[in-house]
């Protein structure tokens, strides 16, 4: 019951912050709304009994990525959006795509709700240290190859960024 109330209130905050991100005409405010949204999502993870994912969400998304976003916005001085649209076809396309997404997700929710294996209830024992160990075990045994491939992917992206940034030697 308490969980439900917390969930509903948080959902309102999440939706409000997402809308605020979309509609504010100042990109810094948009970025801040997005940070709020990320934090709310982290609290959702906490509600589901997954503290590790919640903390990772805050550290990586709210802490690292959004700070870089803010950096870029501030350094480029791109706080205020131009009053007219730069890409006129973008808005109708976005409305169309998001409608399709909404219909699909509503369909999935209702279709899944009929079958029993739908919603995985969070385990009561999930908030224990074993949870962390189990996660590491699964990650490094069962999913070792995808994990390593991901790390190589990130490394490649990093090297790519450095190469792009490197100034050509004069002459």
């Amino acid at each position: 019951m308490t969980d439900l109330i917390v969930f509903l209130v948080l959902s309102l905050v999440a939706i409000a912050s997402a809308l605020g991100m979309l509609f504010s005409r100042n990109t810094v405010y948009s970025a801040l709304f997005l940070v709020l949204n990320f934090v709310v999502v982290a609290v959702f993870y906490l509600l589901l009994g997954a503290p590790f994912i919640a903390m990772a969400q805050i550290t990586v998304y709210a802490g690292a990525i959004m700070v870089l976003f803010l950096f870029v916005i501030m350094l480029l001085g791109a706080e205020n959006l131009p009053p007219s649209e730069v890409l006129p076809w973008q808005r109708p396309l976005a409305i169309l795509l998001s409608t399709i997404l909404a219909i699909e997700s509503i369909y999935l929710v209702f279709a899944r709700a009929r079958s029993d294996a739908s919603i995985i209830s969070p385990d009561a024992s999930v908030n224990t240290i074993e949870n962390l160990r189990e996660m590491a075990m699964t990650l490094f045994n069962q999913f070792l190859l995808p994990f390593e491939v991901t790390s190589i992917l990130l490394l490649v992206a990093m090297v790519g960024a450095i190469v792009l940034n490197k100034r050509e030697k004069a002459g």
């Binding site: 805050i58 550290t59 802490g63 950096f71």
Partner: peptide, 22 residues
């Protein structure tokens, strides 16, 4: 006594940047 206590420290430390940059 969080079982992810150290991660909690990390995430709060990373949030602390916002006040200064804003």
């Amino acid at each position: 006594d969080l079982n992810v206590g150290v991660l909690y420290l990390m995430s709060i430390a990373s949030i602390a940047v916002y006040g200064i940059v804003l």
